[in-house]
Amino acid sequence: MKPAPFAYTKARSVEHAVELAGRDGEARILAGGQSLIATLNMRLSRPTLLVDINGLDGLDGLALKDGAVEIGALVRHAQAGRSDIIAKNAPLIAKAIPHIGHPAIRNRGTIGGSIAFADPAAELPACLVALGGEVVIAGGRGERTVKADDFFTGLFETELGSDDVLKAIRVPAANAATRIGFAELARRHGDYALVGLAAAARAEGDGLADIRLAYFGVGATPVRARKAEAELARGALDDAVAALADDLDPPDDVQETGAVKRHLAGVLLRRVAKQLMEGRQ
């Protein structure tokens, strides 16, 4: 199908984008467009105005700052995938990126766009939650920061208001004790996952502490498996897998039944627990 008509404006600055978006309640911010333009073509969304932020200064930076990795909203997946800063300091994101779409999608899609679009089956929102990261937002009332655990509020819904522009994400930089794990199951490499798991932890003695398990493809948002986290912290993998019955309640979807997804979540937990115990990936 073809998109319904919309107006298009190229923003001159982040402030200009905020102003344009605030003036028109049905405006959408256009970054990489790899999800948004698909929804336009399918007429699943019909904004009146697209505010294009591509090319704006200051949104495509990638830097290590005060113990955190800051990734600008317009950093493309391919750029992040090539980055030494990401590979060294945000290895969970480096491990997730090859699973995002396909090469042509990764060349164009942006980190900020993935987070803002908040597809419940997407990789990066779950990574952000697993890492306990945060989102930097510019809005009509100035700049603010929202924790990942609070950012994703519902199906394709986030803390972003209609006149907000996502500027960057920040995740804590990895250190020698950081352990990460990532696995997903998809029918075709690069498709949205049936079920996926992004995880982070801190090595402590022979075990793991501060475990964060963020599942994707199992609910309306990335879902923390908190009971399984507690069991895994005791070193009880079988109990952690069993605890997923309480943590997760995946609905049936066009790809699989909820029961199959819950089973696959356990399969992924065993794989990811192994990665966490094996050391830094």
């Binding site: 256009l30 467009g33 333009i37 294009d52 591509n54 391919a78 090469p103 042509a104 060349n107 164009r108």
Partner: peptide
């Protein structure tokens, strides 16, 4: 190809 890298022609607007 757009600026030397492959992209989806259906997920890029001509105006961009």
């Amino acid at each position: 190809r757009l600026d030397g890298v492959i992209v989806r022609g259906c997920l890029t607007l001509a105006v961009q």
